[in-house]
Write a protein that binds this DNA or RNA. Structure first.
Lengths: 345, 345
DNA sequence: AAAGATTGAGTAAACGTTTACAAGGATAGC
DNA sequence: GCTATCCTTGTAAACGTTTACTCAATCTTT
């Protein structure tokens, strides 16, 4: 097959008008169904559309009505197991409203984020769903100055410049830590995510809240700053082991780090959950496939994606004008890695 | 913040022209750098662009030059662990060529595929990368009739109507089966994917090739038709167990089914790899996190995504006019689930 | 039956670019 | 110094839609 553009005359509204013997305005009106038209002409036009297999040119339409019916989705990395469900939620919701979603992976680089924002702006997307990598307000301000509606994904919103959807990370972390404490654990290591992200910072707060609530001394030596990656989870535990500080549990700020942590514990012959209990965060699909099954805090990721688009569309249409923050409830999923349901000692 | 479109006057090429005191044609020429222009004017224009923060309107451009600089990516489901790497490869390659990629999930429904094709056509995408769910040539023909360049992902191309990139599935399946045979296995169960897909059919052929090559009788009772899902892998093994046919190994046509199979085996107290060896296909990330580590056939998924876009772009630009089929080599990744590297008995 | 109100359809002007064509100015050749 | 050539720039016509106006025809109303 030769892809020769010349061979494919795109049929336009003009062709339809000619064949149906009406003006192009009439064709447009019938197709958009806004104005009243006579059934007679409507029938003729619809027939012509079918015969010619006419498909309106959305880019012309976009130019005229200043509405591209497309949205940008900016995330760090689709290969990170957290994101596929989110993306799917976004896409399914977008489909309902007839929006195309343009996917952008930034690897968490602020510079890439900025580039993509400009790229998306030149494409005149109607809105952007954005999981920013660092909580710098610069990019939000940029979006703001461009007049593009945004909703922040998985990020708490500071200063109310944009809408956002997230999970109550602080509460989730509290629940995770509480669960370990109730299991009889007293020396609970914590592997945090980047504290620059609201999700990272909030989970750290939740961990501390729980310790405080149960009158357990916060011990800085048990806390490591990870990067939400497998490797950083592994490294954190390795450091902890080498430091020879006692610990009987690990709470990792996401599942991948929890798995990295468990891998490392196993490597050193430490059993999970018998010797050390581990809890993660996110409840990615892997959590139920990994051995031991991972106890974790579930975020309703798919629903978050959906809700984000719902919000975004409301902003685009003007239905909603003030930023809104939707916070989903976390849920403790008790599985093997923390010792399961039964009480310990 | 109120998203009020009226407040954001989009600055256009006209504004730039006015400020730089030149014609819009000159601005366009300078920005596109095709024609020669005097350095003096160029400087004035570039200054104006910067001062006004002008960003060209790509939709107007697309309309004029009939090139939207966007491509569609149609896959069954981004939540299927096979796809994130593919998508990432596609997106990274697209980024290099400055194409936006519009993501579409069809859940493998032919009807959805068709809808998305039309949707993408109305958006006038320059090309489509397509992982079709069933090997029906209808949608390819549709694309063909619309004059949209396509490249098929992870699918062998029949009848040469489009370019494609895939892995040598038949060879991969041969290698997997061979590996099991060399491990001393003689009664190897096979859980196939959908035989309607070239990937499914080819892997089945490879399995049979290997049996034939080693003079092992093909036993229909050991073969199950799965659906590339966890559940179907689990169910296949359960059926096999209930049927009480002897078997000492399982080759599953993808990793998720292999994991489903192992889960089922475990459930019935059968050890992997001691009692039954298991090999999967794809080498998704989970294969190295799952316990036991999964022996599998690696496909270079990310590279496949990249290559697909390379091909697609060549078709779009007209650099390449005839369909081309790129076939990547599979690679056997020997891990725990098949008993590792050492020879058996 | 006349006049006003209502309706249905066409004309043409946008939307923001690119580019064929025209035109003017400078340079070169004689 | 005059013409021919080349360069640079501007003018205006597209690209395929939507929609404000306009206008003719029909329908009410009295």
């Amino acid at each position: 097959m030769v892809y020769d553009k010349e061979n494919f005359k795109n049929i336009t509204i003009k062709d339809v008008a000619k064949r149906a013997e009406v003006s192009i305005a009439t064709v447009s009106r019938i197709l958009n169904g806004k104005d009243r038209v006579s059934p007679l002409l409507a029938e003729r036009v619809l027939l012509a559309v079918k015969e010619l297999q006419y498909q309106p040119n959305d880019v012309a339409r976009a130019l005229k009505i200043k509405e591209s019916r497309s949205i940008g989705l900016i995330i760090p990395d689709i290969e990170n197991p957290f994101f596929p469900a989110l993306v799917r939620g976004v896409q399914d919701a977008a489909k309902i409203h007839n929006y195309a979603v343009i996917l952008c992976n930034t690897d968490g680089k602020t510079e890439e984020e900025k580039k993509y924002i400009q790229f998306l702006y030149s494409k005149r997307v109607d809105g952007i769903a954005f999981t920013e990598s660092v909580d710098n307000k610069k990019n939000i301000a940029l979006l703001d100055s461009l007049g593009i509606p945004v909703v922040l994904l998985d990020r708490r919103v500071e200063g109310m410049k944009a809408s956002g959807v997230s999970t109550d990370n602080r509460l989730g972390a509290f629940m995770a830590t509480q669960h370990l404490i109730e299991k009889g654990k007293q020396r609970i290591g914590f592997i945090s995510g980047s504290p620059k992200l609201s999700s990272g910072a909030d989970r750290a707060s939740g961990y501390q809240d729980a310790l405080l609530h149960y009158s357990i001394q916060y011990d800085k030596k048990l806390v490591f700053i990870g990067a939400f990656t497998y490797e950083s989870g592994y490294a954190a535990v390795e450091n902890l082991l080498l430091s020879r500080h006692q610990f009987d549990a690990i709470f990792a700020a996401n599942d991948i780090m929890a798995i990295g942590a468990i891998e490392c514990l196993n490597r050193y012959g430490i059993r999970v959950p018998e010797d050390v209990a581990v809890v993660g965060f996110d409840d990615i699909r892997l959590a139920t496939w990994y051995k031991p099954l991972l106890t974790t805090i579930r975020q309703p990721v798919y629903e978050m994606g959906q809700y984000a688009i719902k919000l975004l569309v409301e902003h685009i249409t003007g239905e909603r004008s003030c930023p809104y923050e939707k916070i989903f409830a976390p849920e403790l999923m008790i599985r093997q890695s923390s010792g399961g349901l039964e009480e310990s000692k």
